[in-house]
Design a protein around this nucleic acid. Structure first.
Length: 284
DNA sequence: AGGTGGCCCTGACGGC
DNA sequence: TGCCGTCAGGGCCACC
């Protein structure tokens, strides 16, 4: 469940470890995580040998490791992807998929991914911004993020509010957890029609999304199970800060009504039936 | 062409 | 005890 805060924690962890280091060898232990690299695992490996990492970057939930050559390794953690830093010779993780060895002996970087929704690819000329993710909108933490423009984009959609929040071409970085938390904070229902939002309401829901993600980032992200940990294998603490997500049956912290879990887009939405009632203008 | 739903993938868990 | 269905949910992609 890595969303923006979790990906940012990983980016920061990798920054200390990869920046300026020279890749000695890459090992691909399962082909699926490099499926986006159409030329295949061998080509992926060959292109990386001898290259030097510069400081890692992020947009929304995408993370990339720029190379001094101007290219980049583009990655997405998907549902269960993790980057881990480990001493050379440490036992392989059960779901170790890709290993980066370096010219020095300060340890290696590993991509571990149980469900393999995540992956890595080689992006030519992608150091600044990989072309593969040019369509992804800026996230609220981006210095060039335009809150006004994002609110306008939200209101232009003809769909339900949560669907639009999860659409990475409107605003990036928000996933199921922070969408539900932002909706609760804004006292809005997930099915509220986006084109019925007043300009101020659109600004509000995005402000709440930014705020809840900032709070989560401040405590290392949200860890439900072992699927999200930082590069050193440590969990985040924001699970304690969740008001609705995963809280079915627990009292709403605002008004005490039991939180409801409802099916939504083949997954779940959590809301308070009293402070987030079904709107008059709804799109499911 | 924007909106929508199916699919990928593995492991945990509950019911029988 | 063991098998099976369900759920978790990112993003891509086909279809309308």
């Amino acid at each position: 469940m890595p969303e923006l805060p979790e990906v940012e924690v990983v980016r920061r962890g990798l920054a200390d470890f990869t920046t300026g280091r020279t890749i000695d060898a890459v090992e691909v232990l399962h082909p699926r995580p490099v499926r986006r690299h159409l030329a295949g695992p061998d080509d992926f490996i060959a292109r990386l040998k001898g290259q030097v990492f510069t400081a890692p970057a992020r947009r929304g939930k995408y993370l990339w490791l720029p190379l001094a050559s101007g290219d980049a390794v583009l990655t997405h953690l998907g549902m269960s992807g993790q980057f881990r830093v480990q001493p050379v010779g440490a036992p392989d993780e059960a779901h170790l998929r890709v290993r980066f060895r370096f010219a020095d002996d300060l340890g290696e970087v590993r991509f571990v991914d149980q469900r393999m929704f995540g992956g890595l690819s080689y992006s030519e000329g992608g150091a600044e911004l990989p072309g593969e993710i040019a369509h992804i909108a800026r996230d609220p933490f981006d210095p060039l993020y335009d809150a006004e423009a994002a609110a306008a984009a939200l209101r232009r959609r003809k769909t339900g509010l949560k669907r639009a929040l999860l659409d990475q071409t409107v605003v990036s970085g928000i996933g199921n957890i922070y969408a539900d938390e932002a909706l609760w904070r804004a006292k809005m229902h997930y099915a509220k029609a986006t084109d019925s939002l007043k300009p101020l309401q659109a600004r509000e829901i995005l402000r709440h999304a930014h705020e809840v993600m900032a709070e989560a980032l401040g405590v290392g992200g949200t860890s439900f199970d072992a699927l999200y940990v930082n590069v050193n294998g440590e969990s985040g603490y924001f699970e304690r800060g969740l008001n609705v997500y995963g809280q079915e049956g627990s009292p709403c912290p605002r008004d005490g009504r039991p939180i409801r879990r409802e099916p939504f887009m083949n997954r779940s939405s959590f809301r308070c039936p009293r402070c987030q009632p079904v709107p008059r203008l709804a799109r499911w």
